[in-house]
Simulated scan of single mutants.
Amino acid sequence: MTDLFQEPEDATPITPEEREGLLQSWITHRSDLNEAEQENILDGAAWARARRGRRPADLLSVDFARTLHERMFGDVWGWAGQYRQTARNIGIDTYRIPTETAALFDDVRYWVEHDTYPPDEIAIRMHHRLVAIHPFPNGNGRHARLIADLLIERLGGEPFSWGGGSLADVGELRAAYVAALQAADNHDIGPLMAFARS
């Protein structure tokens, strides 16, 4: 058994105040937390896929992104869907989150409307920027991957495989994902696009 709040080395740490937002008293170990979050994420994904509106623009908004995060994590965390209020080891300053998140979705709507990039590249660029903003206390990667999957589906493509395994566990797959994100940080989107379809 591992410490409930022991995060992988490259994951976003949860502050003591955010830990107080844990809603389920039966969660006492990391495996319990992972199980509860995964079940909640599946419910959030089902909710998103059942929503009316099939246009990409229907999900490219701050309101949708925040509601999706709440749907993905709201049974586990009291702060689900709320922007983080503290600095992190990744992400922008907290005061910039609302503006940068809105600008991201404006940009993605423009890319879709004007075929700026191929569909896969639009979804992956959106995913990368959303992870780089890191708007929420936790769950940013999982949230950004689901939004990318929803977008590519609405653009007529298949959901991404994201390496075909769990990115929650420390290991080679997670290391490859983090390396691909870091390459995108350095303006090389290719490795992240390849990883998403691997």
Rank of each mutant, 00 (worst) to 15 (best):
T2H: 13
L4K: 07
F5M: 08
F5Q: 02
P8W: 01
P8Y: 03
E9V: 13
A11L: 11
T12P: 00
T12Y: 02
P13M: 09
I14W: 08
T15V: 08
E18Y: 12
R19I: 11
L22V: 13
L22G: 14
L22A: 10
L23T: 08
W26C: 12
W26T: 14
W26V: 06
I27Y: 10
H29N: 12
H29A: 04
H29Y: 06
H29Q: 15
S31Q: 14
D32C: 12
D32A: 08
L33T: 13
N34V: 12
A36N: 08
A36Q: 01
Q38A: 14
E39D: 13
E39A: 10
L42M: 07
D43W: 04
G44N: 03
G44D: 05
A45P: 09
W47Q: 04
R49M: 06
R51V: 01
R54W: 03
R55Q: 09
A57D: 06
A57N: 06
A57T: 08
D58L: 04
D58W: 00
L59Q: 04
L60R: 10
L60E: 07
S61L: 04
F64K: 01
A65W: 01
L68Q: 02
H69E: 03
H69A: 08
E70G: 12
F73N: 04
F73C: 07
D75N: 14
D75G: 10
W79Y: 13
Q82L: 13
Y83M: 14
Q85R: 15
Q85F: 11
T86V: 13
R88E: 14
R88W: 10
I90R: 15
I90L: 15
I90S: 12
I92F: 01
Y95T: 08
R96M: 11
P98A: 10
P98H: 09
P98C: 06
T101E: 13
A102R: 06
L104C: 11
Y110Q: 13
W111G: 14
W111A: 13
W111K: 04
V112M: 15
E113G: 05
T116V: 13
P118Q: 14
D120A: 15
D120C: 12
A123G: 11
H127L: 15
H128A: 08
H128N: 15
R129G: 14
R129I: 14
L130E: 03
V131I: 06
V131S: 10
V131L: 06
H134G: 07
H134V: 07
H134T: 12
F136M: 05
G141P: 11
R142E: 08
A144L: 09
R145M: 03
R145L: 04
L146R: 06
D149F: 01
D149G: 15
L150E: 09
L150T: 04
I152A: 07
L155F: 03
L155H: 04
G157H: 05
G165Y: 02
A168T: 03
V170D: 04
G171E: 02
G171N: 05
R174A: 04
A175E: 11
A175W: 00
A176F: 00
Y177H: 12
A180E: 03
Q182I: 11
A184V: 15
D185G: 07
D185Y: 02
N186A: 15
H187K: 09
P191D: 10
L192G: 07
M193V: 01
S198A: 07
